[in-house]
């Protein structure tokens, strides 16, 4: 009846997208390294190198989302308040940045470029840090979902599955981002591309299933996406462009890694966008 307020907008979508991307890149890369016993070290490296820029952008967007006169008081968030998901996010992001964003890439750089020699060959340390990074990577993908899910906005909070979709789509974006970097790289890596295209396809399917579960569990509140004012963005942007198109492209043709990765990344961004905006429709 009354006009609703619409405070949160694309800056927050960008922040949530980039945070998820950062977490997912590291998660994907580190797991690729672990499960392939080092065969996909390049994937791990790209993944870890992508973390810091993404995180920095995340923090920039996070700051920009605060009012200009308040953004430099951001340290007010640096208290310990475990009940607040946003406060959890602050610490998760901090610890993730230190491990996955700084230390692990530093060790890789020490190995490859010879800088910071004291880190060279610290395999044990890297593995330990990677495990921590994986854990905080999941946290980074998940916390912004929880930030939305512990609100009184029905689309975000009526079901318990919003964080699940957040993790799933973030991983899609992480796989696609690494694959995109590989595809754009002059140094081709057939194995990595094959593996990642498979992973992307499967991750997309898992994400689609999780989204379906989320929509069903949300009941009527999901109607804004199914048939409401964000239906076009959802069906065309998320479902068709973001999920169906990459799968079909990868299924139908090789050498289309760039396109399908970009579409998948776009779909993830759009998914977070329609959720954030769709939730604020009254």
């Amino acid at each position: 009846m009354h006009e609703g307020t619409h405070y949160w907008h694309w800056l927050l979508v960008a922040e949530m997208f980039l945070g998820g991307l950062a977490g997912a890149c590291f998660f994907t890369g580190a797991l690729a390294d672990f499960f392939s016993k080092g065969k996909l070290r390049r994937v791990a490296k790209i993944g870890s190198y992508l973390v810091l820029p993404s995180v920095i952008l995340t923090l920039v967007f996070l700051l920009l989302d605060l009012p200009p006169s308040r953004m430099f008081y951001f340290w007010h968030f640096m208290i310990f308040k475990p009940l607040s998901s946003m406060n959890q996010g602050v610490w998760i992001l901090t610890l993730f940045t230190m491990t996955a964003g700084v230390l692990v890439p530093a060790i890789f750089l020490a190995e490859d470029k010879g800088i910071l020699p004291f880190l060279k060959g610290q395999e044990g340390l890297r593995k330990a840090l990677s495990v921590i990074g994986i854990i905080f990577g999941v946290g980074t993908m998940g916390y912004s979902g929880v930030v939305l899910a512990d609100k009184a906005v029905p689309l975000w909070s009526a079901s318990i599955f919003l964080p699940a979709t957040w993790v799933a789509v973030s991983i899609v974006s992480g796989i696609a981002a690494i694959r995109l970097v590989l595809a754009l790289s002059s140094k081709k890596d057939e194995l990595a591309e094959t593996v990642l295209s498979k992973a992307l396809m499967m991750a997309l399917i898992v994400a689609a299933i999780v989204i379906v579960v989320f929509l069903f569990a949300s009941g009527d509140h999901a109607s804004v996406l199914i048939s409401g004012s964000y239906a076009l963005a959802f069906w065309l942007g998320v479902v068709l462009i973001g999920i169906v198109a990459p799968i079909v492209i990868d299924f139908a043709a090789k050498n289309m890694a760039t396109i399908s990765s970009i579409l998948a990344i776009l779909g993830v961004f759009l998914y977070k966008w329609v959720i954030l905006y769709g939730g604020q429709v009254h």
Binding site: S36, K39, M202
Partner: peptide, 11 residues
């Protein structure tokens, strides 16, 4: 799914 499956296979 997919990581353990595909990366293990990659190994």
């Amino acid at each position: 799914v997919p990581f353990w499956m595909v990366f293990k296979a990659a190994e």
